[in-house]
């Protein structure tokens, strides 16, 4: 099978280049990661991240034939040759297929991705109703591989300002959590023109998510909730009148 792989070793190379590689696969090689391991056995200088090899850790996210995905759950027979492999776009390349994800995780941490509850901790867990728990489905499963965020043009152009789909989905995961007590602060944290509203709903994130999640829906839900909150706040305020006429 023929591959064209992005290579760059900053210690040796002046600039990146694409290396064509032919590799003889065996019947046991089913996934792209299997082929990459076989290539690495031929050329041990090839650098990539991997760990669980079953789509759980998210470390082998890369750009595969122009679309972000996980090498370990991408079937070889689904790929057109030559298989063009590049590092995740929009992040600095450390070496070959390994990118520096510092910005991605900075954005993730900026949404405070942890439960904030100021009540005295109970003896056992904090309970939720089945309905409240169901609101977290489709959110908590994110493995933070970065495939969605690095396929988003808004992140490419504003990586330090726009949180990105993965971070925003995790923001909503805690905004929607009935046990969290900082919903208002979390919404306020996303109010500037870039952090949330730079999403233009092109849905690249949803298209590439290897876990089949929908970050775009989570982002839309945050916007809807902000409007609902404003409505609820208004309902508690006395009506404003101009010349005796009630205004919105």
């Amino acid at each position: 099978m023929r591959f064209s792989i992005y290579r760059f070793n900053p210690d040796v190379d002046d600039k990146p280049y694409m290396q064509d590689i032919d590799v003889a696969l065996e019947d046991s090689d089913q996934m792209l990661l299997d082929a990459l391991m076989r290539i690495k056995a031929q050329d041990e200088t090839l650098s990539l991240r991997k760990s669980c090899r079953e789509g759980v850790c998210g470390s082998d996210a890369m750009n595969i034939n122009g679309k972000n995905g996980l090498a370990c759950i991408t079937k070889l027979d689904s790929l057109e040759e030559p298989v063009v492999l590049r590092p995740l776009p929009g992040l600095p390349v450390i070496r070959d297929l390994v990118v520096d994800m510092t910005q991605f995780f900075d954005n993730y941490h900026s949404v405070m991705p942890y439960l904030q509850n100021h009540d005295t901790p109970p003896e056992t867990e904090r309970l939720q109703s089945p309905e409240d728990r169901a609101k977290l489905d489709g959110l908590y499963e994110c493995i933070l591989c970065g495939a969605c965020t690095t396929s988003c043009p808004s992140f490419w152009w504003n990586p330090d300002k726009f949180v990105g789909p993965a971070g925003l989905m995790q923001a909503y995961r805690f905004i929607a959590d009935s046990r969290d007590q900082e919903q208002d602060a979390r919404l306020e944290n996303l109010e500037d023109p870039y952090r949330l509203y730079r999403c233009h709903n092109i849905m690249n994130c949803t298209d590439v998510c290897p876990k089949k999640l929908n970050p775009n829906a989570a982002i839309a839900a945050i916007k809807d909730l902000k409007i609902e909150k404003a409505k609820a706040h208004k309902a508690t305020q006395p009506a404003k009148k101009i010349f005796g006429i009630k205004v919105l």
């Binding site: 109010e191 500037d192 023109p193 949330l196 916007k223 902000k226 404003a230 208004k234």
Partner: peptide, 10 residues
């Protein structure tokens, strides 16, 4: 209110 400077993103 959502169209005021209090909500620059919204």
């Amino acid at each position: 209110e959502l169209l005021t400077a209090k909500y620059p993103g919204m």
